[in-house]
Structure formats: C-alpha cells, structure tokens
Design a protein around this nucleic acid. Sequence first.
DNA 1: TGTACATCAGTGAACGCGCGTTCACTGATGTAC
DNA 2: TGTACATCAGTGAACGCGCGTTCACTGATGTAC
Lengths: 199, 199
Amino acid sequence: MMAGPTSGRRANRRGEGERLRGELVEAASRLLERLAGEEALSLRAVTREAGVAPQSFYLHFPDKRALMRAVYEARFAELTAQMRAALADLDTAIVPTGRVGAVARAYCRFGMAHPGQYRVLFGTAGAPGWDPETLPGLTTFELLRDEVARCGVSDADEVAVCLWVFLHGLVTLRVNRPSFPWPHIDHLIDRTVTAYVGR
Amino acid sequence: MMAGPTSGRRANRRGEGERLRGELVEAASRLLERLAGEEALSLRAVTREAGVAPQSFYLHFPDKRALMRAVYEARFAELTAQMRAALADLDTAIVPTGRVGAVARAYCRFGMAHPGQYRVLFGTAGAPGWDPETLPGLTTFELLRDEVARCGVSDADEVAVCLWVFLHGLVTLRVNRPSFPWPHIDHLIDRTVTAYVGR
DNA sequence: TGTACATCAGTGAACGCGCGTTCACTGATGTAC
DNA sequence: TGTACATCAGTGAACGCGCGTTCACTGATGTAC
C-alpha cells in the first residue's frame, strides 16, 4: 500500500503542468479508438487511462464538455492535415479529378481507421459554436470544395456537398454494417467522383 | 399518498398483459424522437414514460438489449412500409428513375422526421443477428436495389449501394450539422439519382 | 550559502444521482367444485 | 349460487455500480532575503 501523491504518478515539474492537459486529450482519443461504437467515454475512464486521479481533470478543464471540445479540435486538425498531406503527395501533373479522388480517399481512410474519433467529429450534433466552420483554417468541406472547383464544374459548392454527404455515409455505414457485402471502397469513391464531376 | 398497485397505473385485465410490451416499445420510440441525439435512452426512462414501475419491464423482456431489438424491428417495419407506400402512390406510367427518386425521398423523409429512431436503425453497429438482412421480407436496401434494377443499369447492386450510402449520409449529416448552408434536400437527391442512373 | 515561504501539481475521501437488476410481495380476476 | 383457490399483472424496497463533481489536503519545487 502506497500513500501520498506518488501513488498514481509523479507530478510534472513546476511549469509543466500543462502537459497533463494534452495527455488527457490523447487518453480520450485512445479510448475513442478502443471503444469505437460505444458512447461510454466517461471522465473517470479518461483519467484512469491517463493514470491520474479523477479530480486532476479539473486542473485543466472546467467540465466534461470542454474536454470533448478539445478532443474534437485536435482530431479535426489531424483529419485536415491528412487530407492536405494526401494532396501534397500528388504528382503536380495530375488532373483535377484525380486530386478530388485523392482527398476523398484520405477522408475515408481517416474515418475508417478511427471510427470512434470520426463519430465525435461528424456523428454527433455539434453544439453551438462547435461546427467546423468556427475552426481556424480551412475546413474539411472547404478542402473538398476547392478541389471540386478546380475541375471546372458549374456549381462546385453543390457538387462538393453531394460528395461530402457520400463520403460521410460511406464511412459510417461501412463501420456500422460490417456484415453487408461491401464492394471495394476506393472503387465506390472513384465511381462517385466520376458520376458527379466527370473524368 | 397512495399505496398499492394502483399508484402507478391500473393493471391490464387478465390475458391482456401483452399490451404493456407494445406500450414499452412505443414509449421507447417516443423518447427516441424527443431525445434525438442523446444516447440516454435508459430502461428507467422508458418505464417512466410508460407510467409503470421499472421492474415491470422484466415481465416482457429479459433485458435492455431485447427492448432495443424490439424497437429496432418495429421502426424498421415502419420505414419499409413508408417506402413501399411511396411507390404504391405513384402513377403507374412513371419512368423507372422516377420510382428510384420516390423511394429515395421516402427514405430521407423518414430519417429526417425521426432522427433518434433512424439512429437506432442505422446509426449504431448492429449486433450479430441484428442486421436488416435477418428481418423478414424485403429490406430497405433491397427495395432500393429493385427499383434501380428496373432502370436497366448494368450493375444495379453497386449503384444501389452508392445511393444508399448517399441517402444515409444525407440524413445523418443534415441532422448533425443543422447550421451548414444546406441546399434543398430533394434537389440533392434528384441530382444524385440522375448522376448514377441517368434521367 | 542557508532557510522560510509561496506556489504548483496533484491526491484522499466523499457527496448525491440515475442506472440495471433482483426478491418478495399485493390485489384483482377468473375457475373448479 | 357461493366460495376457496390458482393465476395473472404489476409494485415496494433495496442492491451495488460508475458517474460527475467538490472540498480540504500534501509533497515537491522554486524564490526572496
């Protein structure tokens, strides 16, 4: 039986208290990957995962909502970074529709690799002030729309909405209905990009 | 202060005990409409809504899962009934793509009118033996696919998958991102049907 | 250089709550004789 | 026709659990003098 503050973990050095904040966000993200479909992401589970007492949570967040918002922002930043990276990796000579396909595949790859995190991003009703629109920088939708616009379609906004809707449906249905006889995902994406913006 | 079994509600007459089962399913469905996004559908909330003591639940269901399954089946039957009704209402001279659009709109109408119920049907990972495939009669997907097949496309199954994915994404994103500047839903559906199966 | 002290990072113990579930009970209703 | 009894439909009270949150506390670390 140990007692005292070292029973859980060694305290961070002075001035490094902010580190726990990040660790809590990462612990929550890890739990979301593991629990996947389950809504059971409790504050106590997060602090347990981080190896810290439940009350330590309140050193860095006013309440549970604030943690979820921090998770939301961190994962959102990761998703957009991966979409951007997929575009950056392309041959500069690729045709515009090829770029649309690449960014679409990156979106789906993220969602299917991290279903629990994806659910936080798009699978729940964003509270007021939670929508992607309020985040700094380009949003997921805008990344998609900009590439669609390069293809020269007459109404890029509407086509991009359709594509986003399709990709979202693909990620979520694919995860929720694993026993359905799914065709290959990339093929469905390519087919849909072609249907909307041509080849 | 009342006491005795009449404090909650009058017991059903002998032989009519089964009525409570149906009332519990309807109470759960009502709560799903009201709570919408919230996962907070507890057994106690359901019995409260039905005006009955928590333990009365166990007269008709072995556990909470069984109730969710009953809700799932009842709402699924309603969705397919509405899709069928939409087809039955059509002029018999309508072109095949018109029928696809009609059944697609009926699907979305149900999902957007009852987001909480729709979430139970498609928004969670169906447990083994829970998938639409195991339900009696035609499934949602099969209803859609049969109409796509009538259009004479070469690979009706794959097109129907794409359409289903699109409709699912439309319902869920539309509900989860109400502040996004959405184009008119029926227009998006028509545009997508046209993109996949032509006019 | 030594020491008193403020501050920082975190814990111990506890609260009230709603949850799913169990057990023993009650009161009304139909049935056998 | 009356009455004892079985059955049915449901309740009262309680259980142990994990939850979000609060309050008072501790031990290490840096700083002023």
